[in-house]
């Protein structure tokens, strides 16, 4: 593994190794605090993303490394018309590893073709966001103790949500996974995901329109935001918006060991009161994001505790 551009670049074995390393980092944080000493991470964020950028930076700092970079295209040479390949060629002289977010699809891949240091895709438009997928896998692995034999409910905007599409592809590689899609008709999972992933691999799934009718069956409920601008008219949005808001009432029949996830930011799709429920895992999920990024940075840099 040299770069991480697409979540499916990683084999199941490579994902397992990353999860194992992240597990160990969580248990023995002191052991890893200098493992990236004298290494530098460049966070090249051509569009703003507080959570992902801070998570990468916190990950590198916890490994004893340093960080440099920018957090919007306005503060980079891109505003002067510099190409991505020129920017990364320059930056690769200053840093050992690059995490890049860019509004254009494929920009991190373009970057990876021009540098010798590892490039991590930190989100390229509506295309890929592999470290979010790894975060989701670590959350499931930590909270459920397994990545197989699970019934996963995906709720909200399943049409445009790239995190949902990537998670389906990633989880489809494990045994005995059932998916339950909970969405309005307008935002149902695209046919190409159903055909190319679910039907091709004969993975059982069902599509429903309310959380309540399936909540009792779920091991995981992955919530996403239903955005007003996705609807053709305001009336449909108003009619449907509350159906996809998770509150205590809708959790009445849920299992005690349900794991509620959300890629964040949350707006109103999960009631604040649910935060106090022990089954709410979305803030822990954000924390797991830091640990899996630590594991990823170490793996791509090829450093290990033994060397120190």
């Amino acid at each position: 593994m040299k770069h991480l551009i697409d979540p499916m670049d990683l084999s199941v074995a490579e994902v397992d190794q990353l999860l194992e390393l992240a597990d160990d980092i969580m248990l023995n944080r002191e052991k890893y605090q200098e493992v990236c000493k004298h290494k530098k991470l460049a966070t090249l964020f051509f569009e703003p993303s507080t959570r992902t950028r801070l998570s990468f930076e916190a990950a590198m700092l916890e490994l004893g490394g340093s960080i440099l970079g920018f957090s919007s295209a306005d503060s980079s040479s891109a505003s002067k018309g510099e190409s991505v390949s020129d920017t990364v060629t320059v930056v690769s002289g200053y840093a050992d590893i690059i995490a890049m977010r860019h509004p254009k699809e494929g920009a991190p891949y373009a970057a990876s073709l021009h540098v010798n240091c590892p490039v991590i895709n930190a989100g390229d438009g509506g295309h890929n966001h592999p470290t979010q997928t790894l975060t989701d896998l670590l959350t499931i692995h930590q909270e459920k103790g397994r990545l197989d034999n699970l019934t996963i409910g995906l709720c909200g905007d399943l049409k445009f949500g790239r995190t949902v599409h990537s998670l389906i592809k990633a989880m489809a590689r494990y045994e005995n996974i059932h998916f339950v899609m909970i969405s309005p008709e307008e935002l149902r999972l695209p046919d190409y995901i159903i055909k190319d992933v679910l039907e091709k691999k004969k993975i059982p799934y069902k599509e429903v329109h309310t959380i309540e009718e399936v909540i009792a069956d779920l091991d995981i409920l992955y919530m996403t935001r239903v955005q007003r601008e996705r609807f053709f008219n305001e009336a449909d949005y108003i009619r449907l918006k509350d159906t996809f808001i998770l509150d205590e009432k809708k959790l009445a029949d849920a299992r005690e060991d349900l794991c509620i996830m959300h890629p964040l930011p949350r707006v109103n799709e999960i009631s604040k009161k649910v935060d106090e429920d022990p089954r709410a895992c979305y803030f822990k999920q954000a924390l797991y994001g830091k640990y899996i990024r630590m594991a990823l940075i170490m793996t791509l840099l090829g450093v290990s505790v033994d060397e120190h």
Partner: peptide, 8 residues
């Protein structure tokens, strides 16, 4: 049009 090759 959203592809990086459209601008670079």
């Amino acid at each position: 049009p959203r592809c990086i090759t459209s601008t670079d």
